[in-house]
């Protein structure tokens, strides 16, 4: 039992890590990764929604009629998204402003609905929570990694929390400003995907 739970959890961290292996949820990935901090914030918000919606959908999977299941999932997911939105507004307001419209848009993040349909719908509550947590953590890691690359090249700093950077490029380093703009997001993600392919092939 414990072993299979661990398996559900860890598959999200490498074998099925979104958005690299499962090419889903690209919009938030590209939009919010201007810094590590934003990436982690978005990742945690998504993880919260994933875990709770997976849990609830898995508990209700025998009650929900299959014809209206998508509508039910949407209601459940949207409810948790709104809760996250309110909580972030109340406790991490600065982050809330930075992520802006992308918090309510977690509702249409294909990862969340995808996990509901592909996993929580067919499995018990415990594996579903493990699955949600794993995929969510994987997503957070990816966002943080992409955020780190873009922030480092685009701004020359790494900031985890608060204002002071934990790492700065040597003096004389000229930041590639375009990494912080839209094209940098696409190209950064494209190159990271290529790197994953290279490593995965061995």
């Amino acid at each position: 039992m414990a072993q299979s739970l661990a398996k559900e959890f860890t598959k999200g961290l490498w074998a099925e890590i979104p958005p690299f292996r499962l090419v889903l949820g690209l919009c938030p990935t590209l939009a919010v990764t201007k810094s590590v901090e934003n990436g982690i914030g978005m990742g945690i918000a998504t993880t919260f929604v994933l875990v709770f919606s997976n849990l609830l959908i898995s508990l209700l999977r025998n009650i929900i009629p299959s014809k209206v299941r998508i509508a039910c999932y949407i209601v459940i997911v949207a409810t948790f998204v709104t809760i996250v939105e309110l909580l972030m507004q109340a406790y991490t307001y600065e982050l809330f402003l930075k992520l802006g419209i992308f918090i309510p848009l977690i509702v249409v993040n294909c990862i969340v609905l995808g996990r509901a349909e592909a996993f929580a719908n067919k499995n018990g509550p415990l594996p579903s929570v493990a699955d949600g947590l794993g995929i969510g953590m994987g997503f957070t890691l990816s966002l943080a990694a992409l955020g780190a690359v873009r922030e480092l090249l685009g701004n020359g700093t790494l900031t985890i929390w608060g204002g002071t950077p934990i790492f700065e490029m040597a003096e004389g380093f000229l930041p590639f400003r375009f990494m912080l703009e839209a094209p940098g997001a696409f190209i950064g993600l494209g190159l990271m995907l290529c790197l994953m392919n290279l490593i995965g092939k061995k």
Partner: peptide, 17 residues
């Protein structure tokens, strides 16, 4: 099922709000 779910969702959100 849909009605109950939506009602619960509304209630929960009103509380959090």
């Amino acid at each position: 099922v849909l009605t109950v779910l939506t009602a619960l969702s509304g209630g929960l959100l009103a509380t959090v709000k």
